[in-house]
Design a protein around this nucleic acid. Structure first.
Lengths: 145, 145
DNA sequence: GCCTAATTGAAAATGATTTTCATCCATAAC
DNA sequence: GTTATGGATGAAAATCATTTTCAATTAGGC
């Protein structure tokens, strides 16, 4: 989600690029962590005065419908934690600092095939996330838990 | 979660097995699908008169803290959908009827090791779910979506 | 610059979940 | 057998997240 690209993408889909949205996208793309709507709102209030939490929610919904965001499920909370890129990928979440690293080679095809054979399900989609502790959080006794 | 076992387990942990809890556990263990608190409450009101939604929430929290329930993340909703067993396992969710089938041979050790090498993370836990359509829902055009 | 439809913010509405509190009930203590 | 005790219950209220409503504003094409 590199500012420019998103801008172009938004235009292509007929959305307007307002200063508020620009700011919201900025916050998300600069953060290595997954952020809740409230997190984003908090970061925004510091700089851009007068932005509403409602606008954050609306922007997030729009960006998610456009496939420019994705959720993180594992960890303390679950619902509507968000993050960056697109394309098939999975998350490796640090439970110390919340940082999220992506990886894409999930190699679940074999398993998927076996499960399909065993159960007769037709599988559409999978959700895979790892939870752990990043090198920094292992070293310094940073973070929660 | 076979009635008897849960009863014993609850006693062991110092919880009381009240008629309400018995009913709640009954509903959950009889269902093949994942149920929200509201779902459970609805099923209960039919039979056991006068039970409160609050009690359902409290029972669910207790059962979850005791490790007798687990959440389902994938699908329409995410938060606090619940289901049965214990031990390391994963879910195969039917997006037609909501049925959930378990499987345990996830074979993610190799992948985990590789990710650990690449990133330096120490991995504690993973979340893996498949979403698909069960044989019945493939045959009859049952369910949503 | 003007027009239109999309966007915004505040307040209200909604929905889910938790807390409070008085009451109830089973059990252990006497 | 009665009494104290603590956990459990239900109703109502409180809280928190999210969505809707609505009037005012603004981006982007003309």
């Amino acid at each position: 989600m590199t500012g420019k690209l998103v801008a172009a993408e938004l235009k292509r889909k007929g959305f307007k690029l307002t200063p508020q949205r620009r700011a919201i996208i900025g916050v998300i793309s600069q953060s290595q962590e997954h952020l809740t709507p409230a997190d984003i709102y908090a970061k925004l209030k510091a700089k851009h005065r007068g932005i509403g939490l409602v606008t954050v929610y609306r922007a997030l919904n729009m960006l998610e419908r456009s496939g420019m965001l994705c959720e993180v499920h594992i960890g303390d909370t679950c619902r509507s934690y968000l993050k960056r890129p697109s394309g098939h990928h999975h998350h490796l979440v640090c439970k110390g600092c919340g940082k999220v690293v992506d990886f894409s080679d999930c190699e679940l095809d074999d398993l998927e095939q076996r499960v399909t054979q065993d159960t007769g399900f037709r599988i559409d989609r999978h959700l895979l996330e790892f939870l752990g502790r990043c090198p920094e959080c292992q070293a310094g006794r940073r973070g929660k838990s």
